[in-house]
């Protein structure tokens, strides 16, 4: 089968790739670009562990074809640090104890980042609504909510 040429900016780096037309963005990130921060947990869009930002919008990368996002600007968890400094969300997740097994963490942080990018100081209710897009089996979400609140204040 013919491959498709795509150019994607991933964490501010341009990648020109020949991908399979039926390749998901999650596969491209993990298998081709070795960016394994986004996780495959359900593979069907029901959990959010694979969430990355595509042109600033949080998408489940397991439901997105790489061919669809040709030309897009993609941010993954690996691209959140700036000049060796953690993103406020990353700091807050650590400080508030919002991380346990860590498998949902990158998707959770990327989902929360999209919220903070459009709404600097979200209310608790808004945070709950947003992160109800993602499943965490470990924490009970309380410390995640606190972390997003805290990051909003930074």
């Amino acid at each position: 089968m013919k491959t498709v040429k795509v150019t994607i900016q991933v964490n501010n780096e341009e990648n020109v790739l020949q991908v399979k037309p039926y390749e998901t963005l999650l596969e491209t990130l993990r298998e081709r670009l070795a960016l394994t921060g986004a996780k495959e947990s359900c593979g069907m869009g029901a959990c959010g562990a694979c969430t990355v930002l595509v042109n600033g919008i949080p998408l489940r990368s397991c439901l997105v074809l790489t061919a669809e996002v040709d030309g897009a600007d993609i941010t993954t968890i690996e691209g959140l640090m700036k000049d060796g400094k953690l993103h406020p969300l990353q700091e807050a997740f650590m400080e508030k104890g919002a991380v346990q097994c860590g498998f949902c963490t990158s998707g959770m942080i990327m989902t929360a980042k999209a919220l903070l990018d459009r709404n600097k100081r979200p209310t608790k209710k808004e945070i709950v609504r947003t992160i109800s897009s993602n499943i965490c089996r470990c924490t009970g979400y309380k410390k995640i909510i606190e972390a997003v609140e805290e990051a909003g204040k930074k």
Partner: peptide, 11 residues
Amino acid sequence: MILPQFEYHKV
């Protein structure tokens, strides 16, 4: 879970 083969076209 991988997808089955298909071609892709953006119109």
